[in-house]
Nucleic acid binder design. Sequence first.
DNA 1: CTGAAAGCGCTTACAG
DNA 2: CTGAAAGCGCTTACAG
Lengths: 340, 340
Amino acid sequence: MTNQTAQSLAEVARYAGVSLSTASRALNDAYGVSAATRMKVLAAASDLDYVVSPDASRLARGTMGRVAVVVPHIERWFFGQMVSGIERVLSAADLDLMLYHVGDAVDRRDFLARLPARRKVDAVVVVAFPVNEEDRARLELIGAKIIAAGGQSASYPYVCIDDYEAGRLAMDHLLSLGHRRIAMIAGTDPDQPGWPAVSGRTRAYEEALRETGIEPDPSLTRVVDWGPLNAANAMEEILDSTQETPTAVFTHSDELAFGALRTLRRRGLRVPEDISLIGIDNHPMAEVLELTTVAQDVSEQGAAAGRLVLRALAGEGSAVAGTGEIAPIKLVTRSSTRKV
Amino acid sequence: MTNQTAQSLAEVARYAGVSLSTASRALNDAYGVSAATRMKVLAAASDLDYVVSPDASRLARGTMGRVAVVVPHIERWFFGQMVSGIERVLSAADLDLMLYHVGDAVDRRDFLARLPARRKVDAVVVVAFPVNEEDRARLELIGAKIIAAGGQSASYPYVCIDDYEAGRLAMDHLLSLGHRRIAMIAGTDPDQPGWPAVSGRTRAYEEALRETGIEPDPSLTRVVDWGPLNAANAMEEILDSTQETPTAVFTHSDELAFGALRTLRRRGLRVPEDISLIGIDNHPMAEVLELTTVAQDVSEQGAAAGRLVLRALAGEGSAVAGTGEIAPIKLVTRSSTRKV
DNA sequence: CTGAAAGCGCTTACAG
DNA sequence: CTGAAAGCGCTTACAG
């Protein structure tokens, strides 16, 4: 025990009475070091409270053990869950996580132009980040493995749910309860221009209806930016613009459902007595508000994305372009839906 | 224009026909380089799509432009807001943000033992991370400036709200409306053992009551882990354990209020006709659910913490131990509270 | 204003 | 098993 702190391996080596090379090898659990010597070095390092300089180590080694996570709206539930899942597996693998927020179109352009993560990371996971061919060339300049989460981006390994299936689960539930006049509040992100214009969830709505012999009524649907208040307004519009009140509402997310719920209550419409409501996500508030929903485990999707990173770094072929993982979803019925 | 990409400054220098040193200076906007030469180098760098190796640069320079952000529960609203605020100012200052999740007591012990951020960052901002003297010594081994957000930690520069004031704002509102029998659902984090046992919010509850001549009734208060469902249960317990139903409920956060609200509704108690409800935060759902609350701007607090980091890195004395910033709060009355 | 050289703190063939 | 030496890609006095 000593009070000194070593700032460099050289000091540790000196303290342990060995050469720099040996000290390095001992610390990196490299073989070719006698047990006794290794012990001596380890003891010295611990005595001197030494820890390698990651910069120097990486410079010499050429790799870095760091991964960038690029998210829009880190403050939103979905992305918080995603990041927490990714973080969980990366930190377990001793990888550092650098967070980049890329919110709107301006951020996006700036990110692609400056590529702040360039030469800093071994992998980057882009969350809900649509990339076209042009973006792709830029992105690849980062010189790291790329993984997509929460949406398929070009041909990177990805993990996401099947939006169409999620929509079908919700719609089929409503239809099976006898609902025929069903409104939809669709979510969209104006800041993600590259995202498919019509989401799988919308397609599911239309196809489910048509398969039941119903032609979708445009006056019953609205497309809004994610966020409960927008949905509250959309719900009002729908109620105002139609003679015959729908018997059910399908929203693209639970948060949208919460907003719709507020409007319904204010209008004196009881859920589910007068109108049924279903969302997607299984947001914690869904349980509190008794909302029927299509559940997905976003944090687990983050973890899966983290595992894709690990595989990509290990050079496994399985994390090759186009390799996708579709996360499971399931219907969770609570009391916001009932037979018509 | 060329298709080649330079991996090192040396290549850029050669391409521009200057020495390594000159190339370096030109790129670092250092003076002592003629305009013409600088242009040549800049053009070369751009042609070759060059970007410095941060590791090498830092190794040589000794500093790194990186800051660690340590948060528990990144997936919760409060922390997402906080991180987004911090990120906003750090990225504007071209600092990289490394995220460390330190959730429960085990994580915490591990973090302090391994200090994964050590030698990797210039500053670390700990969010809602209580630190006692012992922790402090460990933490300082990281060798970086330390900033606390969302709670005063030992004597680091910090930014947070005044919990007592927040509690008083809520309680005084209730009392001014004539409420006398007021329940409280307090939030606590079992994973943060070092946090003050009795929060300022609880103290505010008790003092406000006493100043009005009321002795706090223990059967009207519960302490639960943050999270709406826990509050829902607590609300049930309170309702069950008391003869006389309270006329108002003060919860330590909006999320707790949402849970309480669910129980009240299930019990057939109308808000605010039968019972008033007030929270703290101004969570986005508070607006949706018409909850009266004490608002705080968490994202802005994060930004303020980011600014403290900048000041600390600039070596300004103002970011010295004990320098604190108390974030503003204000009462936002909506329809969940009314005169008794 | 410009360049040759040392140094930042490691890792890793290359010899022994 | 161990050590001397080169090299990772930069920055920055030090001379000119």
